[in-house]
Design a protein around this nucleic acid. Structure first.
Lengths: 131, 131
DNA sequence: TTCATAACAGTAATCATTACTTTTATTATA
DNA sequence: TATAATAAAAGTAATGATTACTGTTATGAA
């Protein structure tokens, strides 16, 4: 039986209030302000648990550590090659590409993972490192 | 100035002859048959170098180690949730989704990374572990 | 042939993440 | 409210993938 945990609650609330898709280490550093003794293992365990419960989302962006997203609505991400930031994109789910991929393929396609990359608005105007 | 290396040549040829997108460890184990003293570091260094030169491609599939592909033609991959295998898909580049993603976005979209997942042909017919 | 150095083998270090061990916090029940 | 069972914690050790470091060897230009 799952029990309540103040640390888990704090991690969930922290993610719900942010839109920059932080890594476990970043979450750990911030949560430590409220729980100075929290351990990194606790952060990882709760991130894994919350992901399984579908209360947060884990996002892989090629290189570097995993990022976490408090927004569980289906949406795509944009990764800036310049500053490394991760932004949300306001486009709908592209179910049609699964159909496309399934043509001339004998397996069963359930879905896809995708993210876009390029230069984010801030880096376009202020240059790299401008953010 | 870049110098020739028999080990690099062997790694490149090995990848060119395979279509299962092996991980560095797998490549290491196979190349060791020809070069018993080759070190894992040499495999990683050459994989990184060949990727930079555009002679092979490095593919990230969410979890687990990076996979390498001797086919540098643009194409998409399918990852089987059942056996973990990675297959090539015969669909064209989907440039249109970059345009789609760029609408209502002020940054510059250069491209996207995407892969599909589900059950591969072999696992559909023989069940999980049947491959 | 000599020489400069790219690439090597072997090993140590790093980074992100997971696992283990003992203690603490939560919650159902007496 | 007190007791007891156990989920979850803190703290630490271990793992897996990858990168970096340190002499040594192989390549190729002079």
């Amino acid at each position: 039986m799952q029990k309540y945990s103040r640390q888990r609650e704090a991690i969930k609330n922290f993610l719900a209030a942010r839109y920059d898709h932080p890594a476990a280490e970043t979450i750990y550093m911030s949560i430590r302000e409220e729980f100075p003794n929290i351990s990194l293992g606790t952060v990882y365990r709760n991130l894994a648990l919350l992901s399984e419960l579908g209360e947060i989302r884990k996002i892989s962006i090629g290189s570097g550590p995993e990022r976490y997203d408090g927004n569980t609505e289906p949406h795509y991400h944009f990764v800036c090659k310049c500053c490394g930031g991760v932004l949300d994109l306001g486009i709908r789910e592209m179910e049609h590409i699964d159909i496309l991929a399934g043509q001339n393929f004998d397996g069963e396609i359930e879905g896809h993972f995708a993210y876009f990359y390029g230069t984010c608005p801030a880096c376009v105007t202020h240059g790299c490192g401008g953010k």
